[in-house]
Structures are given as structure tokens and as C-alpha cells.
Design a protein around this nucleic acid. Sequence first.
DNA 1: TCGTTATTGTTATATAGTAACATTTTGTTG
DNA 2: CAACAAAATGTTACTATATAACAATAACGA
Lengths: 159, 159
Amino acid sequence: MAQPASKPVALSEEWHEKAVTRCAERGARLTPSRLAAYTELVNSDQPLTAYELVARLEDRKGKKVAPLTVYRHLDFLIGVGLVHRLESKQSYLPCSLGEHSHDSPYLLCSSCGKVDELDASRVTQLLSSLAEERAFTLASSVIELSGVCADCESAGPSA
Amino acid sequence: MAQPASKPVALSEEWHEKAVTRCAERGARLTPSRLAAYTELVNSDQPLTAYELVARLEDRKGKKVAPLTVYRHLDFLIGVGLVHRLESKQSYLPCSLGEHSHDSPYLLCSSCGKVDELDASRVTQLLSSLAEERAFTLASSVIELSGVCADCESAGPSA
DNA sequence: TCGTTATTGTTATATAGTAACATTTTGTTG
DNA sequence: CAACAAAATGTTACTATATAACAATAACGA
């Protein structure tokens, strides 16, 4: 039988709350369409590329979604600090931490594809001081570490 | 009047030496075509995108250059450690430092576009220990800092 | 409710990167 | 040197990522 035009969307109270709050703080409008995009990212256990997100939203809504629409949602969500772009993988994931997640170090597991966000002000401080030594005015930083996560490391070698 | 089929190429002895040595060490072949790509990167004061590099090589040689050819050269040069890819800008620049430049922090000036490569083992060490805390097996790291360089900072505000 | 602004839709296009396979060059070995 | 093997390059086509330009709607304030 045909799928319903729109599958139900699930976003935990916690995440939804965060999205609403973050947008309210900045007077930004969390439209249904933007929320839908955010929800897909939150419900994915791995970062998604923009086009993967397009595909999922199409599945969900049962109709075509223009890539540009998704890119606009991503720009918006990144702007309000709800989503982060992984530069080294051209993909996107929800911020699990607070305000300044953009500069957090990310741990990318090359085995399972999951990404962990670290809250490491130590790193930021060190980088700030390094930049300062060069009289470089630091605006933002990209820190992405690739390797194998603990789960995969303990599971993998035994196989 | 028509341009010569091939403009002269200049690569300082120092850089050339480095390229030759690095390739020799690994039994890799530094062909004229690869050297030409490397030379363009070295002679640019900013990182180049793959297609910018294509354009420059076409200018230089006076005939079409396939993007794929350039990507292959880039892969090669990255492989032997002569070139680094800036993830956050999808662009490429010659490594100014030694062996392990891949994990070096890069300072990207958003004003003049120039990029500085730092030799900061301190950062690598800190990141290693952070990864270790999470039992994460670190393989490689991307550290790209954006901001305004000293030159632009001192020149810019006065304008 | 009118006008303004933000958002979304639509189409086309630019930019970045890869796949598959033919051809040429280089290096090796009999 | 000839013949083979391996590496490098050429050619065409294609996939993936992202943006431009402009039209149509929807939300918001006066």
C-alpha cells in the first residue's frame, strides 16, 4: 500500500526544547520545515551530507525537496548554533554541546562513522595563545580528529 | 601576439630540492607534470582550489588540462607529503614544514587569504591526551584556525 | 489591512571530485 | 635491444556538493 504523505516525526522533548530556546534567544524563527531538517539530523546516529538529508526529508514528506531548501535550512541552523558542519567530511550534525560548539574538537570514527563532540576549552586556550604568539586574531577554529572510537576498537580486533 | 606555448616556470632551488628529496625517499616519481602542479602551488601566495590550479596550468602550457589530471597530481603530492589540503576551504597549498605537516595547525587569514602553517607539537600532544581520555585511537587531525593575520590587522583598521 | 520583510519554491548553473577505460611512457628483464 | 610489466597520463562521461537569480508565499508590524 502507498505510504502516508507524511510519516510521523519524533524529536525528544529535550532536543526540541533546545531548538526552541536557542531560536527564541536570537529572535530567529524555527519554522516547521527547519525543525524537520533539524529533527532528521538529531535522529541520525551519524552526520549527514546535505543530499542525504534531502533524501530523508523526501522520504518523510513523500515529495521532492529542493537541495537549495535544505542548504538554506542548514545555514540557518548553523547560524543559530544548533548544527555544526564537519569540514573534513562535508557533512552536518546537531550540536550536542552548548553555545560555542563550533570551535569544539570533534572525534570522527572512521569505522562506525559516529562523531563525538568534545568540550575542551583547554584546546581552545592553547590555540588562542598560539595564535597570539603570531599576532593572529582568532575568529574561529576547525578541529577534527579522525581515528577509531573505543567501541569499534574493542569490537573490531576480535572479528 | 600569440603567447608562447609554454611560459617559463620558476621554482626556487630550495623548494625544488625538497620536492626531489621527498620523492626520492619514497621511490616516488616526480614527473614534469607533477612538478609543474607543485610549482604553481609554491608560486601562489594563497592556497589554490583544484580548478584554479587547472586554470593556471592551462595558462602556463597554453592548452587544456583535464581536472582529473590535476586531482591525480594533488593526490600524489599529498601522498608524498609535499602538499596539504585545507579541508575548510577545499583548497591546496604546499607544505612549508617537515614530515608531519598534515596534522599541523593552519592559520587562515580571512582578509588576505594567506595561510600560515604552525609547527605545534604542543597541540598534537594535547589532542592525543584528550583522545586517550576517551579511549579514542587517533589517526589524523585537522586543525584550521581562521581569523586575521598580523599584517592585515595592522594595515586594515587604519583604512 | 496594507506594506514590509522573511521564508520557501523553482529552475538553472557553478564548483568539486570520481569512474572507466584507452594510450603512452618508463622501467625491467630475458 | 626487444618484449613485457607497471606506472603515468589522456579522454569522456559522470556523480556529488553548493550557489545564483528570481518568483511566489507566508508572517509580522504599523
